[in-house]
Design a protein around this nucleic acid. Structure first.
Lengths: 254, 254
DNA sequence: GCCTGTGAAATGATTCACAGCC
DNA sequence: GGCTGTGAATCATTTCACAGGC
């Protein structure tokens, strides 16, 4: 779901469906684990289980990449790791900048999985002059005045935004103007970008809200096939919400 | 994408499509912003723009909730805020525990958007005895020995896992056994859970890999109708770069 | 016999386009 | 005249089921 503006038509060349692309990293992770255990081959059934999908979907996904399996046998683990890595563009090095080194930005900078697969944190950028020079995850934070130069000097095309919501759009525009064409946005705001720039967003509170929806539904259907023994959470505070933040309007139309 | 096992059929009652549910928080955020600016009504077109979707989709989404708009006029902002909040289950208070108070866990604990909408961080849990008692975001960290008791005492049904990958499945099992039925997983691993438990995952490295895929594709299609002026990032470190379709594997299949 | 690769069918999501109402 | 609500059409994704190769 690359959002922003009108989302690249995706039609070009032999298109791999977006849904498939989104699963490739999952397969890759499972395969890497197998590779580390020196497992030579794996069946679609086994690999699907390890990746948390069903085998028909996995085979269909792989069929978009080519015929990399062997009938009656399965897939060669190393070979597949290579093919998927190449398809995802992980055989090259992607310098990434993280903008906004608060709690979350620091967590991202420290996140190991980041560096592990072709991604390299090229720079950390923050607007607070007091942060400048301070090392986070071994990398000195640079001031946002120098954002454009940092992007260009490092040939960065992927930027991560971990600023407060209010700053995100402005940061986004500077990143794009400086040459960034892919953005991972952690700020809880909709970014608008020109055509040709991809944005993906990660929003914690959205994920929680989706869970709450399903959770509520489970509770609401109370009678229905009560869970196999798991006691549903005890009394829950029925208040009309709003939490410590004092964020909600509290107005309630009839 | 509620993963895990066979993913609740969603059949029951008047089902709202999963894709719609995933967008409701987006609409809610946009509406809340309008509400704060005391905007009384909004058209599908305006709201859609604010939420980053198109208006037909928004109207279709809302049609699953009921007929809350007025033809010729638009939607009443406060009323919609309330209806969507209710549909998402945000009119009640959801106590949440965060397990794994490393960099990421601490960032989550401090994340304001968390508390802002019906969610309340009821407890922070970590396996490191040295952490016990230390306050993070004003909440003392508790030791994981007490996990079950904490879940039960607080009536928690939503858990957030921010542990290292290796610990995630075990933590998940303890959470589920103690009564948690919705899990937000930040650990880069596939959790398996019994039926009736929802899992959503957030994986930074997966998001980056998806961006890299598209990024590579942009670069590969170089000649194609170069973007409307945005200068593509300068020299990129090419390590193994094959052109599109370069097919020389490092390891040959058996 | 086992397991992949893939057409065909089924399901789900998005977009179109317009009737109906204010 | 403007804007919602929604069937119908289109497009995307998943699942089925089996032919084909090892």
């Amino acid at each position: 779901m690359a959002t922003g503006r009108t989302h690249r038509p995706a039609t070009r060349s032999r298109g791999i469906p977006e849904a498939t692309v989104a699963r490739l990293p999952l397969y890759l992770r499972a395969l890497t684990a197998l590779s580390e255990r020196s497992v030579p081959t794996v069946s679609s059934e086994e690999l699907a289980a390890a990746a948390g999908v069903n085998s028909a979907k996995l085979r269909k996904d792989f069929s978009y990449l080519g015929s990399y399996g062997t009938r009656g046998v399965g897939y060669d683990v190393e070979y597949l790791v290579y093919q998927i890595s190449r398809e995802l563009g992980l055989t090259q090095d992607w310098p990434v900048v993280i903008v906004g080194i608060g709690n979350l930005g620091a967590a991202l900078a420290n996140y190991g999985g980041f560096a592990s697969r072709g991604f390299r944190v090229a720079a950390l950028i923050d607007a607070d002059p007091a942060m400048a020079g301070k090392p986070v995850a071994g990398i000195p934070v640079q001031h946002s005045d120098d954002l454009e130069k940092i992007i260009q000097d490092n040939g960065v095309s992927i930027g991560v935004i971990a600023t407060p919501a209010g700053a995100a759009q402005a940061v986004c525009e500077r990143l794009v103007a400086a040459g960034v064409t892919s953005i991972l946005n952690f700020a809880p705001t909709v970014l608008s970008v020109p055509d040709g720039v991809d944005v993906r967003k990660v929003d914690l509170s959205i994920e929680l809200q989706i869970l709450a929806f399903h959770e509520q539904r489970k509770a609401g259907e109370g009678a229905a096939a009560s869970d196999g023994g798991v006691p549903t959470a005890a009394a829950r505070n029925e208040s009309a919400d709003q939490g410590p933040d004092g964020d909600m309007p509290a107005v309630m139309p009839a």
